[in-house]
Each structure stands twice: as structure tokens, then as C-alpha cells.
Simulated scan of single mutants.
Amino acid sequence: MLAVVSGGGTAGHINPALALAEELASRGWDVRFAGTPGGVEARLVPAAGIPFTSFEASGFDRAHLASLPKGVAKIAASTAKARRWFREIKPDVVVGFGGYVSIPVARAAEKAGIPVVLHEQNSVMGMANKYLAKKAAALCLTYECPGCDLPASTPVHLTGNPVRRSVIEADRAAGRALFDLAEDDFMLLVFGGSLGARHINEAVCALKDELLARPHLHIVHITGPKELASVTEALALTPEQERRWHLMGYQDRMGQTMAAADAIVSRAGATSLAEISARGIPALLVPYPHATADHQTTNARAYVEVGCAFMVPDGELDGSLFAERLASLIDDPAVREAQHRAACGRKTGQAAAMLADVVEAEAKGGRRAVQ
């Protein structure tokens, strides 16, 4: 069986797509990936050993309507290219994870009668998935409500958001060895996504003395590449303090890093939340306030409501609430245990298998009549 997986634009689309590809490959599937030539997928997918084919695709700027014809022309050309590609490789199913590139790939599949399965990572459905959902064979969701009206004719499955095995299977002892942590050391992991989060960095730095007053606390602080210099200057750590405050701009061993963590402070992007949930790590979430339709707040609220995490709005980072919630997370084992149990109850580690089950069922259903 052959699956084409498509998505692009951000790691939030690509990482769950790669998690599905891993699961399908373990079941004996052949997997190909369709993405944009300049997106992060063009680097991550080949690095994962998956054949990659590029397609041009872009949206349009509502403030500059002149960009619309160019975007439409790219999608039309890529749709034609995808149809030629499909005639050559004959896929059994196409799986779209969002991003503009999934539009021409899914449209080409529809025209060829190939079933299309969509996966939505966030609590608010992205534009590409919203556009494609009406004709999809199945729509798989991370949250019970994706923030928009769902097409009545499309079967909907709640699968959760797939997480790569490098995160789920990462070894805690190996992760703690990365930072020379003793068994009784407490590791707080702070990160804001691949680009960092300036306001989170500033709020944590403001608590430097209070945090370092805990003798067994280690902070692993991933600032984002552009923020490392300013955070280093703001903290002005002594050599002794640097032993317990581990600063870095970027970390490419996030699986082991998360495995080592006892608690986390982070934004509420879909991939970050799925990885935190899959590992059952207690967390304090600070949603990015400018995300489309404020979807990070909706993402985080779903975790808070079932007891997996605390949440502090970005606008309240400079007040007492952030310091109080962080202190509770660090100092109260009962709080962490309750959050750990609640996160494990979401069974996020099974999401890739659940999504793969849907993909297999649709592929085995055969090709649809071409419209």
C-alpha cells in the first residue's frame, strides 16, 4: 500500500505527519511526502528518510488582493503536477495535515478518485483543511471541537495529535545525562517553540533569584536563536549559576530533553502540547496571544479543563499569577502527580496508531468514483 502525506509551512504540520509516516512504515506501507520546496518540510522529511516531492503553493494577502491571482495560478499548476505524479506512483490514499500545499495535492487526489484523509492539529481548523473538508473521505481531529462548523457529510474521528517515536520512546536517564543531572535534581524545561518566546524569556528571567534559591532546581532554558544573546545578558549568570541554568538558543534533541524534564513552561502550539501530553509532563502553558483566532488559548484550555496543566495568559506574565503557578508546579508533588495522571489519560501516545487505522480503512475502501 502507498500513502502520500502532505503538509507544509510549520513544524506543527510536519511533525505529526512524520509520526504518521513512521506508524504506516512500521505496518509495511510505502510513504511519500508532498511539500513545498522552501518550507521546513524540505529539510525535515528527507532527514527522516522519506522520499520528498515539492510543489509550489502559497496563499494570498487579504490586504493586497493582487497576490490572489498568483496564489491561484500556483495551486492550479501544482494540482496538474500532482495529477501527473499520481498517475505515475498510483497512491492508495492521500493524507493532508494542513498548509497551502495540501490543497493542490488533495484536489488532485479528489479528481483521480483517491480517498483523502485530513488531520487537524489545532482547536481551530486551518484554512486549507476547512476548504478541503467537504470532499474528504474522513476528517481526524485532535480536539472534540475544531472551532468551526463541520461538514455533515464527512466522517469525523477523534484521534489526537500524533507524536514522533523519538519523543515518546526517549530515555529519561539519557536525557538527564545530557545536562549532568543527579537523580534528586529537579529539571524545569522552558521553551517557546522553535523561534522562542520573548515574553516568556523575560518573565522567567525576572524570577532568577527566586528560582535559583531552590538548591536542587535546574532550569533548561531554550530561548530561541534570536533571543539567546539578550537572555544571556539579562541573566548575567555566574559560573556557579551556569551549572544550574542551562541556556541554549535551540535544541535538536528535544525528545531526550523532554524525557529529562520534571515540569515545563511553554507556549501552547499543537505539537508542543501533544509532546507534553504524550510524556505526561506537568506544565504551565502561556498561549501565544496573536495566533490565528487565538487558537493557542483554545488549545491550552482543553488541557487545563481536564487537569493536565496550568495556564497563564500572556498579558498576565508580569503579575503575581505566573510566579504563583510556577512555584506550585515546582514545589507541590501532588499538583505534578495530578497533572501527570490527567495527561496520561489523554492517551496521546496512541494518536499515530489511531490515525493510521483511519487511513488504512479509507485506503482499503478503494478508489471513489471520479467526480
Rank of each mutant, 00 (worst) to 15 (best):
E169H: 10
Y303K: 06
W245H: 04
P225H: 11
K208W: 07
G224P: 14
Q350M: 01
A300I: 09
A82G: 06
T10H: 08
P104S: 01
Q256G: 06
P37G: 04
W245F: 03
K135G: 06
R84L: 08
G249S: 10
G12W: 10
V117E: 11
L118E: 06
F186M: 01
P333D: 04
A133K: 12
H290L: 12
A338R: 14
N129P: 07
N122L: 12
F179V: 03
Y250F: 10
A128H: 05
I89T: 14
T297F: 13
K130T: 12
V40I: 14
A323R: 15
L181K: 05
P282D: 02
K74L: 00
R267W: 08
L68E: 13
A73Q: 14
S67R: 14
P46A: 00
A353N: 03
E22T: 08
L68A: 07
D30C: 02
A229E: 15
P37N: 09
I14E: 10
T297I: 00
L24Q: 12
W29G: 03
G39I: 08
R325K: 14
A291N: 14
D209S: 03
I50T: 10
Y288W: 04
P225S: 10
A152Y: 03
F191Y: 13
S6H: 08
P16K: 04
A263S: 11
G193D: 04
Q350W: 06
L284M: 04
D92Y: 02
G98I: 01
K74R: 14
A361E: 15
P313S: 03
R176E: 11
E169L: 10
K226E: 15
D209I: 02
D61Q: 03
A351T: 12
V204P: 06
E227M: 02
G249R: 13
A206T: 05
L118F: 04
V156I: 05
L68I: 08
H218N: 10
A338C: 08
V163W: 10
A73C: 06
A106D: 14
P239H: 11
E144H: 07
R253V: 05
L273F: 03
H216W: 01
D184Q: 08
L326K: 11
E242C: 02
L211W: 04
D184C: 06
Q350Y: 01
A353I: 02
D314Q: 06
H157L: 03
G280F: 05
K226Q: 14
V116A: 00
A283D: 14
A323N: 13
P91N: 15
A260D: 12
D92A: 02
G366W: 00
T238I: 13
P104E: 00
R27P: 07
Y250P: 15
D92I: 01
S320I: 05
I330H: 10
P115W: 08
F310S: 00
G193K: 13
L188D: 06
A73M: 13
F186I: 14
P151A: 01
F52E: 04
R279C: 07
M354W: 09
C308M: 14
V265A: 00
T257I: 07
